[in-house]
Nucleic acid binder design. Structure first.
Lengths: 129, 129
DNA sequence: CTCAACCTTCCACTACACTGGAAGGTCAAG
DNA sequence: CTTGACCTTCCAGTGTAGTGGAAGGTTGAG
């Protein structure tokens, strides 16, 4: 498979695949005599894994770590479980933070509803923000 | 006030204040004969406003818009209300998205709990991600 | 043989809000 | 007069996950 075909099969672009190779997510591809990359079908499975990792909110750096453990011949199970736990904690924290932000904004918005234009004319930039 | 004092009073850095001037959030400061910026106390109020805007999750670009309306002599009330409504909708969407992500990760994590190491040894990168 | 469609590398750029550092000028104390 | 803390400008980099484009080489069909 050439890079364009693989990209299409994986639902991405050739540019992104080169980027992934550059970032260590894909192993350096075999080359034809003329320098074209060529890939076996196992690379498609690897790309699907990368996409599943992204859907789980993992960063490319985290996905790369898993891949490198796998490439070294070890099952990355423990590490994957750890990363999922971490992500879960992070997401919970983000949700909590956004909840607080939501309350802040909602309060400001409510206050903004009952403001006389005259109050706005004061020295401050904005009377209710 | 010189830039360092103002920065300290506002709880930020001189570097950031120059950046804000550059970005149009602060009006170009008056200068001493030797080229030092100097500020009146009203700039501190402006910086406090910028910080409140950030605490409400507005971007510097949005805060700049409000400031420019104010600087043009108009009360920015309507625009601020609009921005708060927008932010509220965005935050709600982000919370919903994170909720979906949380469910995905939690499901993967549960599945990962009951996996035999042997299943992991298959051709795939990871049996449960 | 030519042409389009593909491939190669390399460099720069996106958004966001700063931060770091170099090279040089100014100010106040001792 | 010197020293150190401050100030000035300007250029470059941070992290994330790519994207855009230039300049040039390869492949396959007509």
């Amino acid at each position: 498979m050439r890079i364009g075909e693989l990209a299409q099969a994986a639902g991405t672009t050739a540019k992104t695949l080169r980027f992934y190779e550059d970032q260590g997510l894909l192993l350096p591809a075999a080359r034809t005599a003329s320098g074209y990359r060529h890939y076996g079908p196992e690379t498609l499975a690897r790309l699907d894994f990368i996409h599943r990792g992204q859907a789980a909110g993992l960063t490319l750096a985290q996905i790369r770590q898993i891949l490198q453990i796998r490439d070294s011949g070890t099952a990355p199970c423990d590490h994957v479980r750890e990363l999922l736990d971490m992500r879960l904690a992070e997401v919970d924290e983000q949700i909590a933070e956004l909840g607080r932000l939501r309350a802040t904004i909602a309060q400001l918005r409510t206050a903004a509803e009952n403001v006389e234009p005259e109050t706005c004319q004061a020295g401050a930039v904005c009377a209710y923000l």
